[in-house]
Design a protein around this nucleic acid. Structure first.
Lengths: 342, 342
DNA sequence: TTGAAAGCGATACCAT
DNA sequence: ATGGTATCGCTTTCAA
């Protein structure tokens, strides 16, 4: 049914090899006489020829396709899927297709009904977006078949691209210091108890805060509350933390909801925002408000991370050696939640 | 490098054909002795065999892959990408891969640098998400190559799956009628001027409203304001519409932002919500508020539309005949913005 | 510049 | 139950 190079060859009256070279032989030197090439291109166009990627893949050994592996549970996945356009564009430059695979954790246990991605050879490389409970079958696949893979939003020494939460923590804190604040707190509510299973950002944002404080000769004032279920107790907890004479004049919070809790606590203590309490945080959106002033946030560079991962994967697919990981910088999105201390 | 059925055949001491049947020949009747099959499966597992999809595709003529075509400009695309998981699941049942293609309009003009999707034969079918300015090259592709394709969120007679805006309009209006309202208005601000280029929902929601009103023997009261740039004049316009003695006691609005405008206008007229004005609308999110009560909305069935399109495409790929289009029903998400008239 | 031939890894038909 | 042979569409190498 579909038009093949043989069809075109017959039509034009040359061998199919010549057609192949003219239409798909990307090499610079034109391999056929310009006249022949013209006729071949014309015929191909008229007959509606499209390369059969399967056949080409068999010859070349390259599928020219990479898989995007999303977790069905972790929320960064939805962030990534919001940036398909950027990802598609980055891959398209290298003539790579993008196939999406949303792997539910449970499916990977029973060896019987593995998803096709693991069962068949369908991609040349993998962009992985699993931070928690990464399916072991994935690792096996990568090891066993030497499948090039790059992880997004995971912090290891090699083959990772991740938001630079450490320096974002430093920058956010320094911003407050530069404004003149001295008593600066760090607020974070953490789901779950074991430190181990947390996303690296939980540690890094706080660590960045610590480093900035110590570098400025200031004393860190960290309120990290970990509990299985926090519910709506966060405001109450924040209130207890803030209810003292030497309370901070400014705080860094792990994320936007924590900033909201702190602001509500502050208001309930009779404080005025932002005069009595400056607040900064980290988020993937700007313009957040919580009844108080627009929040100053450092933006999680999701798009840059995703595209950076795509580019690293392209490189990984050329050279067979691991790539050094890349930390992608945050950018500050100023709001009105920060003012110098009184 | 990769393990092939020939490798396994050599290892086990049988011909590669037997291996092919045992590993990939899905037919029910076991084609080989159970003992041989066991040894083959064991070897395949141990050696890490994965089918080469390119080779299989060449033999079978089927890529087992469908393309999701997203517009880089129209916003329904981002809704769709939020439902990749559902789409992936629906396709996986039929052993189909999902490749994503975000086509920017301008790229499709120059014939030279066509995206791979159009230049090469890489998918068995297409899920199309273009409501405006659908690239002509796409249609040519579909016609010329008889590529099965289903459109999402477009209302034509065949091969479409779309949210049932007409009946949603009816349902929303009837909801107000059933509550006892008699003077019910319809509010819609429309970007752009020409009726032609609007999404079908602009017409259908209003038409549904009309039908419900007429069926109940009530007089439609439609305020449709079309203008190139509306800016923040919407509140003012809504206010003018509502500022009269016989104003509606309830309104249906085209979308959430229009409901907000109406509510703000109502408040500025000294009205109380929802007592003086019940409001219903349509949205893809629930729980929306606009300073007033939580909005009662009919939810755009994005997920169901996307999955329905996937299933229609599967069918389309079997039989070569067009499928009757499917209108997917909205579901009501009750808020507190509707009360019986005073 | 052109073409003949081999090979990629699977499927399928048809003997044995 | 097993295996021989042909075939899919293309790339690649090598010879003419």
């Amino acid at each position: 049914m579909a038009v093949t190079i043989t069809d075109i060859a017959r039509e034009v009256g040359v061998s199919f090899q010549v057609v192949s070279k003219v239409l798909n032989g990307g090499k610079s030197g034109s391999q056929a006489s310009e006249k022949t090439a013209q006729r071949i291109r014309e015929a191909a166009d008229r007959m509606g020829y499209r390369v059969n990627t399967a056949a080409r893949a068999m010859s070349t050994g390259k599928l020219r396709s990479v898989g995007l592996v999303l977790s069905s549970e972790y929320s960064f996945s939805s962030l990534v899927s919001g940036h398909l356009q950027g990802l598609y564009g980055a891959l398209e430059k290298h003539n790579l297709q993008l196939s999406v695979h949303v792997l539910p954790d449970k499916r990977l246990v029973s060896d019987d009904e593995l998803p096709r991605l693991l069962r068949e050879h369908t991609v040349d490389g993998l962009l992985i977006n699993y931070t928690h409970r990464r399916p072991p079958a994935l690792d096996q696949l990568i090891d066993k078949h030497h499948l090039p893979a790059v992880q997004m939003n995971v912090k290891s020494a090699s083959d990772c691209v991740y938001p630079d939460d450490l320096n974002a923590g430093v920058a956010a804190t320094r911003h407050l210091i530069d404004m003149g604040h001295r008593r600066i707190g760090y607020l974070s509510f953490i789901w779950g108890s074991t430190k181990q299973q947390h996303h690296y950002s939980v540690h890094d944002r706080c660590e960045g805060y610590r480093q900035a404080m110590l570098a400025a000769g200031l004393e860190p004032d960290v309120f990290e509350y970990a509990q299985e279920a926090l519910g709506s107790k966060t405001v109450e907890l924040a209130r207890e933390w803030l209810d003292r004479p030497d309370r901070p004049t400014a705080i860094v919070t792990y994320c936007y909801p924590h900033a909201v809790s702190a602001e509500m606590a502050a208001i309930s203590l009779g404080m005025t925002l932002p005069d009595d309490l400056s607040v900064v945080s980290f988020d993937d959106q700007k313009g957040h408000q919580a009844g108080g002033p627009t929040l100053t946030v450092w933006m999680i560079p999701v798009r840059e991370t995703v595209i950076g991962a795509a580019e690293m994967l392209v490189q990984r697919m050329k050279q067979n050696a691991p790539c050094d990981s890349i930390a992608v910088p945050f950018v500050c999105e100023p709001g009105e939640s920060c003012v110098p201390p009184r």
